[in-house]
Design a binder for these strands. Structure first.
Lengths: 334, 334
DNA sequence: CTGAAAGCGCTTACAG
DNA sequence: CTGAAAGCGCTTACAG
């Protein structure tokens, strides 16, 4: 029932080869025949079957994307950046998550072996870096969207975690804050180390080295941000700023401070990291280090698609800059 | 280089037909040969090419999903529900958005014609319902995840908008609130009408009909929620509760109330709708009507996949219940 | 129980 | 400039 290249050929009175040629613009062909074929294609509303084309050409025109989960607030931004580029180039995006652990990964591996896509974009599900590296070495084009500071041996897109941390520090120093507290993320993440190093170095250089007890190990959750700061307050520690390494834990910190009756930013200024939508809607609105999530998705997709067209994949990571977004959590309202 | 069914056949000393049969478990076959073939498959790590299988069978084992955008806070939940089911059944999920308007839709239409997927799950991008209806009538299996209260003529999954609105009303009535204000979403949405009707009816029945000037037309944004309530306060209107029809505008309402120095919930209680993560992190934490987003994605995917296995698609919408989640915006803290 | 052959809908040397 | 034929990697009647 659906119309095929054979139908078009018959209607136009030419061979399938010729139809294929006008479709793909390959080889010389008589302008008149080409026009006639195009005419028939339009009349019949013919569109080549993606599957058949893929089989014949050995390429699917599909890019795969593997993400840990879809329910994190910032994943959508990255995904949107990816989808926009992929769609604009006429590719499809096949999405995989690791939500069901081992089982998910096994399914995903099957799809890789089944050649369901031509290349892979990945935000690394925890503990799968070795596996991804293998895929790359086995010849699958892979671009990592590196939110963890992995610095892998294959192409990747990352952001300036270190200078992002530094910018938070400089901002707080300019506001005269001398005794900051840092709430980190999981310590195994490279980005956590980088953000901390950038922040700590800046304070050290300014002559106010960060005391170890002012670095609180967190896990990027709201609850942990709240309890870490809550406990610190209860212990009677004195501090005038909090740098939480993601917005969720920064929001938790805001709550702990409000619960303690402290004024933000007068008593304690707070800076987050990421700039997810939540940051703008918290109380008070959160100053944060903006991560160019959408641009990272965008850049990764472009890199992969360019590779399909012959541009070699870059060996060094493409690093996109963060920038500080100042809101009420560090700027007293007039 | 990649290994094919022919390689397996050769190594096992059988025909491709036989290999295909053990792969698909079709037809009677000698237990010994089957075992030998399986052995070879395992040794070679053979996985059938998805594209070739799709072409031969006329089915892709891929479900398409069309969404308006990926950056809305609740889309990720629905998507995760969908992906979990789709992956568990060994299908792939091909994702499309309408972020680039007409152009996106044209690209999408191409993929439909190219038979890139067997069936479609859709959260309707505004103004595309007619197009989707056409696709369904043209024979494409479609299930709508109906967040707008469309009640389409094809299979869909929806939620109890009306009784969700009613539950918000009953809760506020129980708290003794007699003069509520409603901040709606875009009035063209069926869900907006339903939520309002459920809410208004409950108040009318309780003997406190909603005055028209207490129904504020909104657009589901934070800023609109804030300004609508802000203006109402400035006008000197008196009210003791706000029912905002999504969490984002409810957060905006919270901000307007805080800015006016009102206590929440003592002076004004606030109820939202959706129960996105933001709701739990707002100040104060927001009481809201939980929408079973993940379950909706889950149910839609199951419906579509069941159809592939022969179960007819239901004609009536599958309606999943909302439930009220009570937090501090209506419950005074002790 | 098993295989040879045709077919799915394209593309791509190879001839002419 | 154009077409017949082989091939991409599978599945599925049809024979035996």
């Amino acid at each position: 029932m659906p119309i095929t290249i054979a139908d078009v050929a018959k209607h136009a009175g030419v061979s399938k080869t010729t139809v294929s040629r006008v479709l793909n613009g390959k080889g010389e062909l008589n302008a008149a025949t080409a026009a006639r074929v195009r005419q028939v294609i339009a009349e019949l509303g013919y569109v080549p079957s993606a599957g058949a084309v893929g089989l014949a050409r050995g390429r699917t025109q599909i890019v795969g994307m593997l993400v840990p989960s879809l329910t994190w607030p910032w994943i959508g931004q990255v995904l949107q950046g990816v989808v926009d580029v992929v769609e604009a180039e006429g590719f499809g995006l096949l999405l995989f998550t690791c939500n069901r652990g081992e089982e998910s990964l096994r399914r995903f591996a099957q799809q890789v072996s089944a050649k369901s896509f031509d290349g892979l974009l990945v935000i690394e599900p925890e503990g799968t870096l070795d596996y991804i590296t293998e895929l790359h070495q086995a010849g699958l084009p892979v671009v990592l969207i590196d939110d963890r500071g992995h610095q892998p041996i294959f192409p990747s897109v990352a952001t300036t975690d270190r200078s992002g941390g530094a910018s938070a520090a400089r901002h707080l120093l300019e506001l005269g804050r001398r005794r900051p507290v840092v709430v980190t993320g999981p310590e195994s993440f490279g980005c956590v180390q980088d953000r901390l190093a950038g922040f700590a170095d800046e304070y050290a250089e300014a002559g106010h080295p960060l005391p170890p007890e002012h670095v609180l190990l967190g896990d990027f959750t709201f609850e942990q941000g709240r309890s870490a700061v809550g406990r610190l307050l209860a212990s009677g520690a004195s501090f005038d700023a909090v740098f939480a390494q993601n917005d969720l834990s920064a929001s938790g910190a805001l709550l702990a401070l409000r619960e303690a009756g402290l004024r933000i930013p007068e008593d304690v200024a707070v800076v987050g990291f990421d700039d997810v939508p939540l940051a703008a809607y918290s109380e008070p609105a959160l100053t944060t280090v903006h991560q160019p999530l959408r641009e990272m998705g965008d850049a990764a997709a472009r890199m992969l698609l360019a590779h399909f067209k012959g541009t070699p994949l870059p060996t060094a990571a493409e690093v996109l800059p963060t920038h500080l977004v100042v809101r009420d959590s560090t700027r007293s309202r007039t």
